[in-house]
Design a protein around this nucleic acid. Structure first.
Lengths: 342, 342
DNA sequence: CTATATTACTAACGCGTGTTAGTAAGTTGG
DNA sequence: CCAACTTACTAACACGCGTTAGTAATATAG
């Protein structure tokens, strides 16, 4: 059983050319003269012999691993309900494939920060990195910044020089809360999507506050609670709001997933959405329109975020200068039944 | 600016030993005698110089890429709502990390089958592969089988010799439907989780049928509809069931995600769950208990499936023989309110 | 005191590719 | 007819590591 690997040398020999020629032809290197006849012969022989170049050897020789890394900065249990992730996965893989790249997915936890980044970056396991949900206190990012490693944030991190693709979380939240105000609500609660060490959570909370202030409504600390990515946290924080002596008549939950928990809590209290408590979410996850009642929410263009991020990343990897350092994509309010507008 | 890479040669020179010694020490190769003093010196110097071995060079020299591949065999739009995926991601990454490995995620579509597998396997981009949701008509699998490539299926594929980790889809479905029967339902609809080219869908449908037959109830073709992974499909198929002249009084939806759509359809018809139509789902996704009403469903141990799969895979990669070729994990019915039992 | 074993290493090869510098043959211009 | 180009390649180095076979020095056994 002669199942030895087929190498470019084998192809070269069979085609009667040098290994160099095989490499030049198969990689379609520009500015090199190879006769059409030879070119076709090489391609044909390679195909015939089932030649597949070895990734490691290519990476070693070229200095490029042909991997991009998607790095998630959340705690494990938060990933289990992360619907955003599933929405960006396919676009990312799709874009990577177009550049003949693959996707590595990793999770960095607080204990591993530096080690994880180092192993990925210094070990040249990836050519570029997309960071989802960056946190303010992520110290490992310094390494990326210092090494000028191709990095794109999905999200924002003020005070850093990273390229980023994001939405205007603050403005989007403002419009969500303003919508509730326009429906006559004057006591509106807020449950964030995450702890405020995540910048998105901070911005969404700020938008909530701005909307109140713009309308001349008081900001009450006790009406603001912090979710933690999953429905359970929404359930708990909503219960806390409902236990107040005078609960809000509406709630802005800065994450649909968290909102699902909040809605369950409201129903358990035998209250009706939106009659007793109106609710507006954030993200427009694919389940939002099938919730009970269908959830009014801010539409987040997840797939577009992924595509734009990877476009920028590929430019950085090619050492081209992307046009914009910070890209903000549009969001819009999707009015369904949970807010009581219809 | 001298930002050249730190190689094992640099470490060797600084530590006053050979490159071989550095490699032996840092890789903790067994059965090799290195004095404790030298060992510590090498480790210390490597740390001090910030040495991180280059992945590609290691891979080329050792023949192992230190990557495992998670390959999803679904169509892109189905991945966007795939909650199972998010649940297995962390366990897989966690397990991989323990073996000093990374996770590659890829999607194979029907048009790419062979090419994708070839590039991954023959290009030695991965050392092993975990296939989620295998389909009967996946021709690319022949390649994996033929090459005896370390492969584990999350799911089953009869007629193949692959190692697999799965649940007993048929028995689980049977228990779900039997539960509905025990509540007095005699006309029970079924919406599958996916087209029947996916083996899990086939098995779950079979379990439904067996439960009916065991109870002496007739199997009606028109009461069986096929979902397609997402809530939208559940919505549409449920509507089809509701348009029947005599709709069922209960439905078994073989996927919670699909069930969410079905529940929305039921509510749109101003019918009550479970009073007008009882419903039982499958998978026990994290959102199920927060649905309205909370969804009775079959609990699928997603994280365990991931862990067991990767355990087997790592053994295969090490060329050890795993104990079982087919592992079946336990499921159980989680009774909530959607079935009307409480 | 010699033969064998053990300890603590190292020299050198090989992994399979990308890429640069160079070459030989053929073509063109004056 | 010779120099300058162009065409169509190739030889040889580099990438950074794992690993095998071997060596020199010391310890142990008989």
């Amino acid at each position: 059983m002669n199942s030895r690997r087929v190498t470019s040398r084998d192809v070269a020999e069979r085609a009667g050319v040098s290994r160099t020629t095989v490499s030049l032809v198969l990689n379609e290197v520009e500015g090199v003269q190879i006769s059409e006849e030879t070119r076709q012969r090489v391609i044909h022989v390679a195909e015939e012999m089932g030649y597949v170049p070895e990734a490691a050897a290519q990476a070693l020789a070229s200095g490029r691993s042909r991997f991009i890394g998607l790095v998630l900065t959340r705690r494990p249990h938060q990933i289990a309900t992360d619907v955003f992730l599933t929405q960006i996965l396919n676009p990312l893989i799709e874009m990577a494939r177009r550049h003949n790249m693959r996707l590595l997915v990793d999770i960095v936890e607080e204990t591993h920060h530096r080690e994880t980044y180092r192993a990925l970056v210094r070990g040249r396991r990836i050519d570029g990195i997309i960071l989802s949900g960056p946190r303010l206190n992520d110290r490992g990012l310094r390494l990326l910044e210092k090494e000028d490693f191709p990095t794109v944030l999905m999200g924002s991190l003020p005070g850093t020089s990273f390229f980023s693709v994001d939405i205007d979380n603050c403005a989007a939240s403002r419009s969500a809360v303003t919508h509730l105000i326009s429906l006559g609500h004057i006591r509106i609660g807020c449950i964030t999507n995450a702890p405020v060490s995540y910048t998105a959570a901070l911005d969404r909370r700020r938008g909530y506050r701005q909307a109140l202030e713009n309308a001349g409504l008081p900001f009450e600390e006790q009406l603001v609670r912090h979710g933690d990515f999953d429905p359970q946290s929404g359930y708990e924080q909503m219960n806390a709001l409902l236990r107040l002596e005078s609960p809000p008549s509406a709630v802005f939950v800065a994450s649909d997933v968290v909102a699902f928990g909040a809605m369950a809590a409201i129903r358990e209290h035998d209250l009706t959405i939106p009659d007793d408590i109106a609710i507006v979410g954030f993200d427009d996850v694919p389940f939002a329109k099938f919730a009970y009642p269908p959830l009014t929410t801010i539409h987040l263009p997840a797939a577009d975020l992924a595509r734009r991020s990877s476009e920028i990343l590929f430019k950085l990897i090619k050492r081209e200068q992307p046009t914009d350092r910070r890209v903000l994509l549009d969001t819009h309010l999707v009015v369904r039944r949970s807010c009581g507008a219809e």
